[in-house]
Amino acid sequence: MAFQMGEETRTFPITWDVSANKYKIESRGLRILTEGMKDKKIRGIRCHECDTVYIPGPFYCRKCHIEIDEVVEVKDTGTVMSFAVDMADIRGNPLPEKRISAMIKLDDCDAWFIGTVENMDWKDAKVGMRVKSIWVDEPQGKFSDIDHFEPI
């Protein structure tokens, strides 16, 4: 039952013009978070019903399905919930440097954030390890204000 593939036929280039889209993205939570980062503070939104603290804060709690807007500050230390060590790109080509990118749950909040963990050998990284944020010297209210995380 060997299948014999037919003769090759040509291909036509077509495009999905995603650049034609004007995406509307809710941004209050992002603004509250990044503005706070200017002062080295991390702020999220708490659901007044179930106490879940989201970062960045959405306008509604998806568990309780209610509108939420209570701004809360959380710590810049946290726990690594999971991590991956990037070693190659998606097609298998090795990266020049191994990089630990971790899912970090900051203290006092329920959201997991991805951050790079530095100053440790990737072989020593563990789920559950404690990390702290290392801020840049002059934060500007951007995600890049936290340069990286380091083990405590």
Binding site: T9, R10, T11, F12, P13, I14, T15, W16, D17, V18, S19, N21, K22, Y23, K24, I25, E26, S27, R28, L30, R31
Partner: peptide
């Protein structure tokens, strides 16, 4: 409050 985001790229395909 929202931002309008543009993705400055298009995705390319080759249809057989």
């Amino acid at each position: 409050e929202f931002v309008e985001t543009i993705v400055p790229m298009d995705f390319n395909y080759n249809i057989r």
